[in-house]
C-alpha cells in the first residue's frame, strides 16, 4: 500500500525532451521540389480521432456486457441463489429512488450511509495529514528523526489497519471515533513515507541555490522544501485515500451502526443480495470519484503535471 510513486519522472523526461530539442541545430527546410508529393498517405486526422473515441467507448461496453452475460449464465446454472441482473436493476432503482429517507437510526437511505462513511474517511484522512505530513518533513530533513521513527513505522506499516480497531474501541468506547482512528492509521503511513521521500528527493541544486541566496530556515521550507515536496505529498494523500475507502467498508462491518460497510453487512443478514451487488457498484463509483478529486488536486498543485 506504500507504492512510492515517483512523480518526478515527468519533468525528467520532459527536460530530456527539451534538451533533445535544444541540441538540434535549426533544421534547414527540407528541399521538396515545388509541386512535389504532399503527405497524401496520412489518414485524415478527424477520422482517426473518431475511430479512437468509438473504440474507447465500445470496448469497455463490451466488457460490461460480457460480465452481465457471465453473471446470468452463472445464475441459471451453478448459483441459482444469485439474483438475476434484471432483478438487481429493479431493486437498485427502488433503493436509489429515495436515498435520503430516515426511519429511525437503524434504517436510513443509502445516501446517508455513504455520507457517514465519507465523513469518517474525511476526518481520519484529515487528521493523518495534520500529523503525517509534518512528521514526514521532519524525517526527510533530519537523519536523527528518521533514525528514531523509521523502525517503528516499518513494523506498523504492514499491519492491517483493522487490527487497530479493538484498541480504538477500548480507548474511545464509541463507534465513530474508533472508525476514524482506523482510517487515521490507514492514511498516516503513506503520508509520512511519501513526504519524507519527497524531501529527500529534492535535488542538491535547489539546496545550493538556497545556500547561495542565504535563505533562512523558514524561507527554505516555504520557498524550496514545501513546493519541491508537494507532488510527493499529494501522491501520498491520493494513495492513502484510496486505501482508506477500502478499509472503511471493512471497519464499518465490524463496528455496526451506520455507514456503507454496515449497510452491506446488514443487507447480508437480511439475505438481501441485490443490495450487496448494488453496494459493490456504488462503492466502486465513489472510489473513482475520490480518486478523480485527488487527481484534480494533483494536477493543480503538482508543478510537474502542469
Amino acid at each position: 500500500m506504500h507504492a512510492q510513486a515517483l512523480p518526478l519522472d515527468g519533468p525528467v523526461v520532459e527536460a530530456a525532451a527539451n534538451a533533445a530539442v535544444a541540441s538540434q541545430p535549426p533544421a534547414i527546410a527540407p528541399a521538396v521540389p515545388p509541386g512535389g508529393e504532399p503527405a497524401a498517405h496520412r489518414r485524415p486526422p478527424n477520422r482517426e480521432r473518431n475511430r479512437r473515441i468509438a473504440l474507447t467507448l465500445l470496448l469497455p461496453l463490451l466488457t460490461f456486457l460480457a460480465v452481465l452475460a457471465g453473471w446470468s449464465a452463472l445464475q441459471k446454472t451453478v448459483a441459482p441463489e444469485l439474483p438475476t441482473p434484471a432483478a438487481t436493476w429493479t431493486h437498485a432503482t427502488s433503493v436509489l429512488a429515495d436515498p435520503f429517507y430516515e426511519n429511525g437510526p437503524n434504517d436510513m437511505g443509502i445516501g446517508w450511509q455513504l455520507l457517514y462513511s465519507l465523513g469518517r474517511v474525511g476526518a481520519g484522512f484529515g487528521l493523518a495529514a495534520l500529523v503525517g505530513i509534518p512528521l514526514g518533513f521532519l524525517m526527510g530533513m533530519s537523519v536523527n528523526v528518521q533514525r528514531a521513527f523509521s523502525p517503528l513505522i516499518q513494523i506498523l506499516r504492514p499491519v492491517s489497519p483493522l487490527a487497530w480497531l479493538p484498541i480504538g474501541l477500548l480507548v474511545f468506547k464509541a463507534v465513530d471515533p474508533s472508525a476514524i482512528f482506523v482510517i487515521f492509521i490507514t492514511c498516516i503511513w503513506p503520508m509520512i513515507l511519501n513526504t519524507a521521500a519527497g524531501v529527500k528527493a529534492i535535488p542538491q541544486d535547489y539546496m545550493n541555490v538556497a545556500a547561495v541566496l542565504k535563505l533562512g530556515k523558514f524561507e527554505l521550507a516555504r520557498r524550496i522544501l514545501f513546493p519541491a515536496t508537494l507532488p510527493y505529498v499529494v501522491t501520498g494523500m491520493r494513495l492513502s485515500l484510496g486505501v482508506a475507502w477500502m478499509v472503511i467498508v471493512a471497519a464499518e462491518m465490524l463496528t455496526g451502526g451506520i455507514g456503507i460497510g454496515f449497510w452491506v453487512w446488514d443487507e447480508w443478514n437480511n439475505l438481501n443480495v441485490p443490495s450487496i451487488i448494488l453496494a459493490i457498484a456504488i462503492i466502486g463509483l465513489v472510489g473513482i470519484a475520490l480518486d478523480l478529486v485527488m487527481g484534480l488536486a494533483q494536477s493543480r498543485l503538482d508543478y510537474t503535471k502542469r
Binding site: 541555490v209 547561495v212 542565504k214 513546493p227 519541491a228 508543478y303
Partner: peptide, 29 residues
C-alpha cells in the same frame, strides 16, 4: 566563509526552480 550572494553561481544545469516562473525565479534572488 560559507556561501553568499556576493559570489553568485551559475550552475551547469541552470537550477531554476520549476514551480516558479522565469520572473519569480529572478525575483526570489
Amino acid at each position: 566563509k560559507g556561501p553568499g550572494p556576493d559570489r553568485a553561481v551559475v550552475f551547469q544545469n541552470h537550477s531554476l526552480l520549476p514551480w516558479l516562473t522565469v520572473y519569480e525565479n529572478v525575483q526570489l534572488a
